[in-house]
């Protein structure tokens, strides 16, 4: 396995032999990888290759068919009760659509984990929440309901909530999905600044090429056919040097579908000539 730096001697996440799927269908088979402390680690791949499935298994939402996921040294698959709670407190998750609680204000959303797990007085919780919101540039929107925020703001608020308990690892599911390029770039900047200033480890699921190139330290490329990792490393390096057709297909944005028609043929095929009914002769 390719190791980038010394950080990998002490990985914060290590996944070993993870096999997972739904019902009888296996989506990923025997996947193993490590994530170094403070790394921005991006899981990439075309749609349907199991990126989100991998993420949901890494945060313990679904039990895998086989394998282990160690987060900061503790196996989330095997952990139960209090031990599991301790692991969960050490991670934060931003879901694809934000998953903010619609019945609470943004500030209350961010404060919820603090309310649940700390004995801080309400006043202190409010201050902490406001600080977290300011980290993602939403300090003015604390009293707003989630339904009044734009898509990008919802995701930023969700990151603030995920950071409420100062977790060591943040998981982001498709942060740029459904965002315009400018908003997406802002979100990338938030991620980079949090990683660099606070040393948070990020695990991001994404398929947005520009975002991946600007934000990732290291990527793994999943493939639906291989049911696992087909390439890993620095995305810029992969982009420039890799000759693997599967990697090329992703970075060159090549269509997986059969050759499209040439434009000339296309124009012909879909432009009807003057009509006469078909005749059949035997």
């Amino acid at each position: 396995m390719h190791m980038d730096d010394g950080a990998m001697n002490d990985p914060i996440i290590s996944v070993r032999g993870l096999t997972c799927g739904y019902g009888r269908r296996t989506v990923l088979k025997d996947v193993s990888f490590d994530v170094g402390r403070g790394e921005v680690f991006v899981v990439i791949g075309g749609s349907g290759c199991g990126k989100s499935t991998l993420l949901k298994h890494m945060i313990g939402l679904y039990p895998p068919m086989a394998g282990s996921v160690r987060l900061s040294g503790a196996d989330i698959v095997a952990a139960e009760g209090e031990a599991r709670l301790e692991i969960l407190k050490g991670i934060g998750v931003m879901y694809q659509m934000g998953a903010l609680f619609g019945s609470m204000t943004v500030l209350q959303n961010v404060g919820l984990p603090l309310e649940e797990y700390t004995d801080l007085p309400a006043e202190a919780i409010e201050v902490v929440s406001r600080v977290k919101l300011s980290l993602v540039g939403l300090e003015k929107f604390g009293q707003v309901m989630p339904s009044e925020l734009s898509g990008g703001m919802v995701k930023r608020a969700a990151i603030a909530r995920a950071m409420a308990l100062d977790p060591a690892i943040l998981f982001l599911d498709e942060p740029s999905a459904g965002l315009d390029p400018v908003t997406s770039a802002e979100l990338d900047r938030v991620v980079r600044s949090l990683a660099e200033n606070l040393g948070i480890t990020f695990v991001i699921v994404s398929h947005e090429l520009p975002s991946i190139l600007s934000v990732a330290d290291r990527v793994i490329l999943l493939d639906a056919q291989a049911k696992g990792i087909v390439a890993q490393g620095d995305p810029r390096q992969l982009n420039e040097t890799s000759k693997d057709p599967r990697v090329r297909r992703f970075f060159d944005r090549e269509a997986r579908l059969p050759e499209p028609l040439s434009p000339a043929h296309q124009a012909e095929a879909f432009q009807p000539a003057a009509s006469t009914a078909a005749e059949a002769h035997t």
Binding site: R84, V93, Y95, M97, A99
Partner: peptide, 16 residues
């Protein structure tokens, strides 16, 4: 609706 919006998943991963 909370299930559909992944809010239940969010609760679960918060350990709630």
């Amino acid at each position: 609706t909370m299930r559909v919006n992944e809010e239940l998943d969010a609760l679960t991963t918060m350990g709630i």
